[in-house]
Simulated assay, not measured.
Amino acid sequence: MTVPLLTLNNGVQIPAIGLGVFQTPPDETAAAVEAALAIGYRHVDTAAAYGNEREVGEAIRRSGVPREEVFVETKIWISDYGYDETLHGFEKSAAKLGLEQLDLLILHQPLPTAFDRTIGAYRALETLLADGKVRAIGVSNFLPEYLADLMAQTSVVPAVNQIELHPYFTQTDLQRVHAEHGILTQAWSPLGGITSYRGDESRSTLDDPTLAEIAAAHGRSPAQVMLRWHLQQGRSVIPKSVRPARIAENFDVFDMELSDDELARIDALDTGERGGPVPADITLENFGRPIPEA
């Protein structure tokens, strides 16, 4: 099956669905990525802070899928912000992945208490882009005010902002800002799993009655309905799983269509409550940790 492609604001194309490896242990990562590539995925999202970039690279090499067919995305952690530090952060990630060029490199979080370091980091991404070491650059978890501040001090509009986005937290105002500037909205925790990670099983999207009703009408799972909701609204999604059956289920969403009424019913589930960390709370003191060289 051919994965639909989305075109970034610099003309680079990205597969609409990818495999996320957040919280995937290194010893399970390679098998999960290999399974995804065998199923038909051609996009993998990792990060320096996940500690599994090396295994992602190993899986791509073992898969037999040509490197140029796999879109590889990773992230610079806040401990490596600053111009020179971020250039080195790229070298660390590229070495672990075993790749000379990355398809997308993004800043993992804003750093509001040291935004000058965030700006320095993004300017390093601009240099890497100009030098051809990355094909596109972007950010993650940036609120509208951080995007405005960033774009006022740099030259390249981010191609992507990867944000928490699921039926219970849709960030419509932020999505509107993205649309105004040609920034692709990429959803992390696209199935609302972050609520379960935080122990709030009582409000799991997977058990939501509205999603269950829509899923039953299509003979699909609530997870498939949520992914289809994202895709039909033009977003990139990176669902995470280590189970081959679930990885395959998440990929099997291209031959279904939700109605406008169904999309609106899912939109209406928004609670306005964030499940993950508040971007303004991210500081080096609380979240900084060294990223190993190897």
Rank of each mutant, 00 (worst) to 15 (best):
Val253Arg: 01
Arg265Ala: 15
Lys240Pro: 09
Leu227Ile: 15
Pro244Leu: 07
Pro222Ile: 03
Trp229Met: 08
Ser221Pro: 15
Phe254Ile: 04
Gln233Asp: 09
Leu263Met: 09
Pro239Tyr: 04
Glu249Ala: 15
Val237Gly: 11
Ser259Val: 01
Asp270Lys: 07
Leu258Ala: 10
Ala264Phe: 01
Ala245Arg: 12
Ile247Phe: 12
Leu227Phe: 06
Asp270Pro: 13
Pro244Phe: 07
Thr271Lys: 04
Leu269Trp: 00
Ile238Gly: 13
Arg228Asp: 07
Asp267Arg: 01
Glu249Thr: 03
Leu227Gly: 10
Ser221Val: 07
Phe251Cys: 07
Ala223Lys: 10
Pro239Phe: 04
Arg265Phe: 00
Asp260Pro: 03
Arg243Trp: 09
Leu269Met: 03
Asn250Met: 08
Ser221Trp: 08
Leu258Asp: 11
Ala223Cys: 09
Lys240Ser: 10
Gln232Asn: 14
Leu263Gln: 02
Gly234Ala: 08
Leu258Gln: 08
Glu249Ser: 11
Arg235Gly: 10
Arg243Met: 04
Arg228Lys: 14
Glu257Ala: 14
Asn250Ile: 02
Glu262Val: 00
Gly234Ser: 14
Val237His: 12
Arg265Lys: 13
Ala268Gly: 03
Ala248Ile: 04
Ile238Ala: 10
Phe251Met: 11
Leu258Thr: 07
Arg246Val: 09
Pro244Gly: 10
Pro222Tyr: 06
Glu257Leu: 08
Arg246Gln: 13
Val253Tyr: 02
Asp270Trp: 05
Asp270Thr: 07
Arg246Thr: 08
His230Ser: 13
Pro222His: 09
Pro222Leu: 05
Met226Thr: 12
Phe254Arg: 06
Met226Cys: 15
Ala248Lys: 15
Ala245Tyr: 07
Arg265Met: 02
Asp267Met: 00
Leu269Ser: 00
Arg235Glu: 11
Lys240Thr: 15
Asp270Leu: 02
Val237Asn: 11
His230Glu: 14
Phe251Gly: 07
Asp261Tyr: 00
Ala268His: 00
Ser259Cys: 03
Arg246Tyr: 08
Glu262Arg: 02
Pro239Asp: 07
Ser259Gln: 04
Val225Phe: 05
Trp229Gln: 12
Asp255Gln: 14
Ile266Ala: 04
Phe254Thr: 06
Leu231Tyr: 12
Asn250Ser: 05
Gln224Phe: 09
Leu263Ile: 15
Phe254Pro: 06
Lys240Arg: 15
Thr271Arg: 06
Thr271Pro: 05
Ile238Trp: 05
Pro244Ser: 11
Ser259His: 05
Glu257Trp: 01
Ile247Tyr: 13
Asp252Ser: 13
Ser221Asp: 13
Glu257Gln: 13
Asp260Trp: 02
Arg228Gly: 06
Asp261Ser: 07
